[in-house]
Every structure is written in C-alpha cells, then in structure tokens.
Computed example of a mutant assay.
Amino acid sequence: MTPAKLPHHTIEGAPAAPPLLLGSSVGTSTALWDAVAPELSTTHRVVRWDLPGHGKSPADLIGPGATVADLAALVLALADSLGIDRFAYAGVSLGGAVGLHLAAHHPERVESLAVICSSAHFGGSARWEERAALVRREGLADLARSAPDRWFTPGFTVPRLVDDHRGTDPDAYAACCDALAAYDIRESLAAITAPTLVIAGREDPATPPAHAREIADAVPGASLTELAGASHLAPAERPEAVVAALRTHLTGAAASGTAVRRAVLGDAHVDRAQGNTTPFTARFQDFISRYAWGEIWTDPTLAHRERSMITMTALVAHGHYDELAMHVRAARRNGLTPEEIGAVLLQTAVYCGVPAANSAFAVAQRVLAEE
C-alpha cells in the first residue's frame, strides 16, 4: 500500500537527533502527547502522527474493513517521506498495536518499541463491530460523553482530548474500529526483536495490566512497567511517569554504547569525557555513545581489532593525531601488537601520503613508549 496522502503530523527536536514516532489511541489526536513530546524532543526528533480522520489527518486515508497493517503502511509512508529509515516507536492503544505490527512485520525499520496501554488483541471482534455500526449510524456524540470514564481515573479529565473525540470523523473512527476488530498479533509476538517496553495503567479498564503482561511475557526480553493512578491514556494522566519510563528505555542503546566505549578507550578516558560534559556538549556525548559506540562498535560484523585498524587509518587520512593517540591505546586493548600497528601505519603511507604517515608514526611511537 502506497498512500497518495499522508497522516497529519508534527515534528519537534533537532533534525539530526534520532527519530521517535508517537502514535495515539482511537478517538484522540497528537494532543495526547502534549505533556510528553516536548520533554522527549530534547534528545529525539519527535514525530507525532494522527490516525485517519483524527486531529488534522484526512479521513479518506482508510475505509471500511481497514486493518492495523493499513495503518502501519501509513506510518512507513510518513517515515519515508521524512527520510527516516530506522526509528524508535511509542504508541498508545491502537497506536501501540500499530507499533507491535511494525516491529513484528518490519523489524528492519524499528529501532526500539514502547507499547502503552495497549494489547495484542482487543477482546474479540464483536464489540468493535458493534461500535463501528453504532458510530456509522449515530455518530460520536454518545461515545464522546462517556470517554472520560473509559480514558481516565475518576475525577480526572483532559477537555481537549474529549473535544478531539467529538470532532473525529465518524467514518474514519468506524474504520479504526474495523481494524481493532480484526487485530490479533499474539502469534507474532515472539518474532519481535526490537528492545520493547510495555507500559500499563493499573486502573485501565480498556486494556488492563493483564493485557500488558501478555505482551511482555511473549516478546523476548521485553520489560513491563505498571503505573499507579493511571487509566487508559497514561501519557495524559501520568506524563511524568511515562517520560521517565521512555527516557530509560530509549537510552538503553546509549548505556550499551558507554560500556563498549569503556572497554575500547578505557575507564579513565570515558570518566574524563563525562566529567567534562556541559549542557552545551551533553547531546553530542549522547550522540556518540548511541551511534558510534552503541551501534557501530557493537556491530558483530567486524571484530574490535579490525575496527581499530580502520579507525587508525581514517584518523591518519584526516590528520586527527590527538585522536590517533587515543586509538593507538585502544588498538592495544583490542589485541593489536606494536608490529601490527606499525603495519597499519605503513599502509597509510601508500594511500594517505608519507608526511601523514610520518606524523602518525611519531604519535604511535610516543604512545607505545609510554606503555
């Protein structure tokens, strides 16, 4: 499916930051993330998208008989239009179901997954078929009036979200109900490889914690967080707790990268770099921990000793001799002998130039002598 039109979306955060896509529940809009997205945009390029006929999305993006796969195709088309290949994804309810489908059927696109107040199935088809018929027949007024009881704990509400429910296109809402009726991904959960966080609201009547536990038990390595004082729309009711859980989940790659960085460069160097981090440089430090060390150096295709040889060559080619000294020490940690380091630098004399290699030998000789 290649939609001619795309869902409405908003973008926050630096263009070069790692992308995070946020999907909302049926009956709500991107406003569901109003208290969460700005916080996450300090470290991510946050893309919120509206379901068809919700918020500002065109209603005719889907029709009767729609499936979660159709909605997932809309998300992929949106990501493609923004030049986003791999992304982190977090979604609530139907938005979470879309995330599960993406992670199960398009694993090459999903970097990490957070499933919030959602389910691997939504209680069978009958209730959703009945709701779809009701909405097509009578509109959304009655459902909007009862929305706070389904969405929030007693005494709490977000009028903006209730207004969004009331303003949703009935045909598109009914088509989303069709998607919920047909959805059951339980047999595919074990195939999900993306790091997965499942968040449940302890007082959620729509997708109770048992549904979240079912997902967490089936997805390999998934973690589960249950939020007290939260019902079905946890990002609106408990935004601070949702932000904290997502931050911990999304920085998992950075934590892994930091461990590799320490193994290659040594604790003293990493401690010094972290100790010198300022608010101005914090995002850069996070960037290199996640990408350079959390993705490239952890890729098992090449061994660390091979990566050391490539890195030294590149540093010589660009004249980065301060960095070269650090990576000569790293090469020794990664098992290269002085003779092998010398052979790498001799190779650079051929392809990077004799003056560059001469400077590189001087740096390496000093570092090796210090050992």
Rank of each mutant, 00 (worst) to 15 (best):
A273Y: 08
R127S: 11
T311W: 06
A206P: 06
T225L: 10
R127K: 12
V135K: 03
G155P: 02
V367W: 03
A317Q: 11
D171R: 10
H106R: 05
R283G: 11
G96R: 00
P195G: 04
Y321A: 13
R109T: 03
H232E: 00
E323V: 08
A77K: 13
A79P: 01
Q285P: 03
R333M: 04
R332N: 03
A212L: 12
E12Q: 12
R145W: 13
V350I: 13
R290K: 04
V92S: 01
A303S: 14
C176S: 11
E214S: 14
A141E: 10
D184A: 02
L100V: 06
A206T: 10
V135W: 01
V242I: 15
T258P: 09
A317Y: 13
R45Q: 03
E240L: 09
D171N: 13
A132S: 00
E371Y: 07
D80M: 14
G83D: 08
R166T: 09
R127N: 14
W128I: 07
G275C: 04
A263M: 13
V47F: 00
A182G: 14
D85A: 11
A182L: 09
V316M: 01
P300N: 01
R127V: 08
G13F: 07
T153W: 11
P154V: 02
A325F: 03
S41G: 03
I310T: 14
T157L: 12
A263I: 05
H232S: 00
G53E: 00
A73L: 15
D217Y: 12
L302C: 11
L224F: 03
T313S: 14
D322N: 08
P64C: 03
G266T: 07
S57M: 12
S112Y: 15
A4H: 13
V363Y: 09
R127H: 13
E340Y: 01
A206Y: 12
N276S: 08
M1G: 14
D164S: 10
